[in-house]
């Protein structure tokens, strides 16, 4: 695994605040090691900007190991960049070539307003979970773990949905800015598990209602979300959400 150095042109979205118009600014960055992660490359850019007394580029990130879901970025028009099943923090510069121009933008969706530069507000996702993405069991109220049997195979499917990291790439990748993949991952996990059954009707109805209220678009089954998802959440969960929604619409008690 040898090291190469890249010289890059970076077209970065700069926006001073939520009400600023914003626009692209181009920076030249030389000597980027191919071992760097994409965010480390931005760290180096920021060091260069600070040295030149220009305010560094704001971007969200935290764990830098692909699990917290805080990093984002549209990289050359792709959510989390060109690699499959990869968050921006796990994308490495070996994926780029010397002399490349790289365009870096925030998530673009009405429900994710820009706060500054590449940072957006994703609190809409929290409100959707708050509308029903849980099992109502108070602390202390649980039976023995093995009293609830879940066949290993079903468990795996539930886990596939539960793996969602809540980053919002699905919304950013969707031409309609739909949040269906995110919502379906939680609805599906809790519809598969017996623990989720008592509330399954209300859950799907309420979460979808909240999703609509937040201003996310509708799903037209183009599957861009699945292609962009770093946690490889499948659109099969959207199909399950649709079945759950139909079921709830027919059978809901209230």
């Amino acid at each position: 695994m040898s090291t190469h150095l890249l010289n890059l042109n970076l077209r970065v979205w700069r926006q001073a605040g939520p009400n600023d118009q914003g626009g692209f600014k181009t920076y030249r960055l030389n000597g980027v090691s191919t071992h760097m992660s994409f965010l480390e490359m931005l760290d180096v850019l920021n060091e260069q900007l600070i040295a030149q007394k220009e305010e560094p580029v704001a971007f969200d990130h935290d764990c830098r190991e692909g699990i917290c879901g805080m990093c984002s970025l549209m990289i050359n028009g792709q959510a989390h960049g060109p690699d499959n099943a990869t968050t921006t923090c796990q994308l490495h510069m070996r994926r780029f070539k010397d002399g490349d121009t790289v365009t870096i933008e925030p998530w673009r969706a009405a429900a994710f307003p820009v706060l500054r530069d590449l940072v957006v507000d994703r609190s809409a996702f929290d409100r959707i979970i708050s509308a029903g993405g849980f099992v109502s069991v108070n602390t202390g109220n649980a039976p023995d773990g093995n009293a609830i049997l879940v066949p290993g195979v079903r468990q795996e499917v539930a886990m596939d949905g539960a793996a969602c990291i809540g980053c919002g790439a699905c919304v950013a990748a969707c031409k309609n800015a739909s949040a269906m993949l995110f919502v379906s991952a939680k609805v599906s996990q809790l519809a598969i598990l017996p623990q989720g059954h008592p509330e399954r009707n209300a859950r799907v109805i309420n979460m979808v209602a909240q999703m609509d209220k937040e201003g996310f678009g509708s799903c037209t089954n183009t599957s861009e979300c699945e292609a962009a998802c770093p946690a490889e959440v499948s659109v099969a969960h959207i199909a399950r959400l649709n079945r759950e929604y139909l079921r709830a619409s027919i059978f809901a008690e209230t």
Partner: peptide, 18 residues
């Protein structure tokens, strides 16, 4: 017990036990 009740998908054996 609490986490299982919340729907935390712990790994399971084929027959459904943890």
């Amino acid at each position: 017990d609490q986490c299982v009740a919340q729907g935390v998908p712990f790994a399971r054996e084929y027959g459904g036990t943890l």
